[in-house]
């Protein structure tokens, strides 16, 4: 049986004294795209921080392809093949586009068919290639998002976490980001996509997990969900 790309079991995490994750359990299958939904403050970003090691789980297990990574340092987890496109993009503003990619390059894992190189990132995002010598802080929002994705791919990840990649972008750019995510999934990359844009998530995800107040309220196939499904209206609707 193929191991799940990512599995969280009963994960509890705290920001200082505030208990944010209350026993989160969710699964992203290998080669699948899991959409992680939830209101503001439901714990989505905390989940991402916990997986990449910026936050240590107090209890519970985080496993990557069957291997425990919970509690490791972020750079170790990165070496295990987890990459993050962080919320708010958080590109290195004072570095050039090229440098943003260079610093994130990692050794290619054995068995990787088409490893990510700078040339391939520029092929995927030609705009970045044109602006390779420019400081990342001077890019437009959409270009910064491309760079954040390119930077994550330079780590040649086995699991890609994307935290609200559509946030603050114009609709046509959102569509472009959506197409990029689908292409990555079609290459076999396992992806967790955190989104406020429910429509986008339902369109492109294979599975959906919904967080409410720090625990998973729903997990199931995306195909069975529609905007008026009770799981959506109850957990994501505006009160």
């Amino acid at each position: 049986m193929a191991a799940d790309a990512l599995r969280l079991d009963g994960v509890h995490a705290y920001y200082g004294d505030s208990h944010v994750l209350h026993g989160v359990g969710l699964v992203c299958g290998e080669g699948r795209l899991l959409g992680l939904l939830g209101r503001n403050g439901a714990g989505k970003s905390t989940c991402m921080s916990t997986v990449v090691g910026l936050l240590q789980p107090k209890r519970g297990a985080v496993t990557l392809f069957g291997k425990t990574i919970g509690g490791l340092a972020p750079e170790r987890i990165s070496a295990h093949g987890v990459a993050l496109v962080p919320q708010g993009r958080r590109i290195f503003r004072s570095l050039t586009v090229r440098e943003n990619l260079v610093v994130a390059a990692q050794k290619v894992r054995a068995g990787s068919l088409r490893p990510w190189t700078m040339a391939r990132v520029f092929e995927t995002f030609p705009r970045l290639g044109e602006r390779r010598a420019q400081y990342a802080g001077s890019l437009s929002g959409g270009e910064q998002q491309m760079l954040a994705i390119g930077r994550a791919l330079m780590g040649n990840p086995r699991l890609l976490l994307m935290d609200e990649p559509s946030e603050g972008l114009a609709p046509q750019i959102v569509a472009e980001v959506g197409r990029t995510i689908v292409n990555l999934k079609n290459e076999g990359l396992s992806i967790v996509l955190v989104e406020q844009n429910i429509k986008l998530a339902l369109e492109i995800a294979d599975d959906i997990a919904i967080l409410n107040s720090g625990s998973v309220a729903y997990q199931g196939a995306a195909a069975t969900l529609t905007m008026d499904h009770p799981a959506i209206t109850q957990n994501l609707g505006v009160h």
């Binding site: 990449v52 090691g53 910026l54 340092a73 972020p74 750079e75 987890i77 990165s78 070496a79 990459a83 993050l84 962080p86 958080r90 290195f92 503003r93 004072s94 570095l95 610093v103 994130a104 990692q106 930077r151 994550a152 330079m154 780590g155």
Partner: peptide, 10 residues
């Protein structure tokens, strides 16, 4: 620029 994210990218 951003030490936590620098660690996350390895």
């Amino acid at each position: 620029d951003d030490a936590p994210i620098a660690r996350v990218v390895g």
